[in-house]
Design a protein around this nucleic acid. Structure first.
Lengths: 202, 202
DNA sequence: GTCTATACAGTGATAGAC
DNA sequence: GTCTATCACTGTATAGAC
């Protein structure tokens, strides 16, 4: 009769509780007591599954990166209608990176990357690197179809991502404005696509 | 005969030591003992000047934001030679935000903004907001001189900043690559200016 | 594997002498 | 203001019973 006994046993419920706690407060502000209590197990059980707080933290964050960023896709887009396709792509991207959990993950990892250098690489590979690769694949097809004129697709992908992310992402992670709604996202994407198309449309 | 007695007295040496410690390890990984030892004073002296660890942290970070980002300027640029001017501007911007202290500051603030919400605003006002405003001022003059065609100078400033920052900044804060040298900075700026000029040159 | 109970180190903060 | 010495507390981690 534990509080948060998830399907898959106690290991899973520990990971779930740890995820919530770490994402909400970071590494330092969370105690193993809290995690154990919230998972509905004893502290000794936590240590039976994860040798230390560091190990648990690494497991949680690594898994979150994989789970969270895996679904991003640049498929089902028409390479000839670049404007519409880039808008959809930009929207998918921005919605993903502005989601509350993604923002929290971003904050935690940056704050702890000095103590956990491996996490920076994990995050980079799971998120930005993959997103950029998929976006580049689309840009390549759009260039092949003649709709875009791209001197360097790799760099163009970086610029597209940067334009879409803009400053709204930074404002969100810094908490200087309330979470972005659909309208703000649509507006930011539209502006980014405009500029990108101005630069690279044939 | 203290270890780090800075000119200006003990308060200053405490701030200096605290700055080094916090920037290197964040809030949680640093103890008041460490700071006191490194400043060459007793812990009681630290508490005589700053009522709590939180207060000291806030003082350090707030001061660092002001000191560090104040010098950024968009002056002494020729509005008619946009390509050269934007290159200089982009270089100043990127060198500033990629400097080791700026990167460390960025990490700390993002990691602790949940616990210290005010710091996000302080950082934003001192850094990104100011930089963007000054860059926009230049863009406005360039548009007035007829060299650029900008439908929205505010948005154009955001896009310029985003293009210049690119992904190199993210790679640096995530520690997935070694600190950027002059060549990488010059390359990133050149690419960003190219794209921006393609989009907005008259 | 899981629990209760506890060891042990390190933390932020303070009292009291000077 | 500054020091030394100390407090009260919380944190991680583990021993031992089941």
């Amino acid at each position: 009769m534990q509080r948060n006994e998830a399907p898959g046993g106690k290991a899973e419920s520990i990971l779930t509780a740890a995820k919530r706690a770490f994402l909400a407060g970071g590494f330092g502000a969370v105690s193993m007591d809290t995690i154990a209590r919230e998972a509905g197990v004893s502290k000794a059980t936590v240590y039976a599954h994860f040798g230390s707080k560091e190990e648990l933290f690494g497991a949680v964050i690594g898994r979150e990166c994989e789970l969270y960023f895996a679904p991003f896709s640049a498929g089902e887009l028409d390479p000839r209608d670049v404007r519409a396709s880039l808008t959809v792509l930009g929207r998918r991207f921005l919605e993903l990176v502005l989601a509350p959990d993604a923002i929290a993950l971003h904050r935690i990892i940056l704050g702890e990357v000095t103590r956990f250098p491996a996490l920076g690489q994990v995050f980079w590979s799971a998120g930005p690197e993959r997103q950029r690769a998929r976006i580049e694949a689309f840009l390549r097809s759009a260039a092949a179809s003649g709709a875009l004129s791209l001197p360097d697709t790799w760099l163009a992908a970086e610029h597209f991502v940067s334009l879409v992310r803009g400053e709204i992402h930074l404002r969100q992670v810094l908490r200087v404005e309330s979470p972005a709604g659909e309208r703000e996202i649509a507006l930011a994407v539209a502006g980014a696509v405009d500029t990108f198309v101005r630069a690279f449309a044939r």
